[in-house]
Amino acid sequence: MSDLHTSLSDKQSSLSDEQTSLSAQHTSMNEDQTCNILLTGVGGQGVVLLSRVISETAHRLGQGIVVSEIHGMAQRGGIVQSVVRIGPTVNAPMLPSKGADLLISTEPIEAYRARQFISKSTVVVTSISKLVPVPVILGLQAYPPMDKMLQELEELSGRLVTLDSRVMAYELGNSLVSNIIILGAAAGVRVLPLDTQEMLQTLSGIVPKKTIEANIEAFNRGFELANK
């Protein structure tokens, strides 16, 4: 977990204890063997690619799978959401409130916006790299305070993993792998009922050949961060 997350936890010691026990109870699947994943972010951040890696891996491994991708006007910088449900009897590619086992977000506001889907059995993996919405640039609305957003996400969820994916991607020398670092972190929290090597195999089959190595490195960087 990131330093920021740790410092937040320290501030709320009473909550942290409760969360530790909840985290320990959390298994990779809920009772009916279904894993419900909500991916959210901003158009252009590669949310649909993450959704594809997860869903195609699950399909190759013979698991039941249903996915929704709402594109709409996403290409123009709007919100992109994808629901991935893995399990023997999944039909609707939508989640009820509090219905996510795993929330993966490529932007902190979007994780916060999706908080209705979070419960104490949700693991939240979100980038804290800001992508400032246009109304904020225009001075019409404010970007919410990061610490308050993360504090609330932490209170609502079973576990919160935050990472500054943009900075980490720059450190790796490739600004384009930011989303793959987040995917790696999502794999690292061990909620997905998927073998990590299988996910890497799917990823390698989707991304351009010459970028495979960079993508695997990015995935592993995220994985290590979350798998602590």
């Binding site: 709007g78 979070i118 919405p133 404010a142 305070p145 308050k148 209170e155």
Partner: peptide
């Protein structure tokens, strides 16, 4: 799903490139 904070979240409308 709301908690004590419930911050106001800015819109993220699709925009011209």
């Amino acid at each position: 799903a709301s908690t004590s904070l419930d911050l106001s979240v800015p819109n993220r409308p699709p925009v011209l490139c």
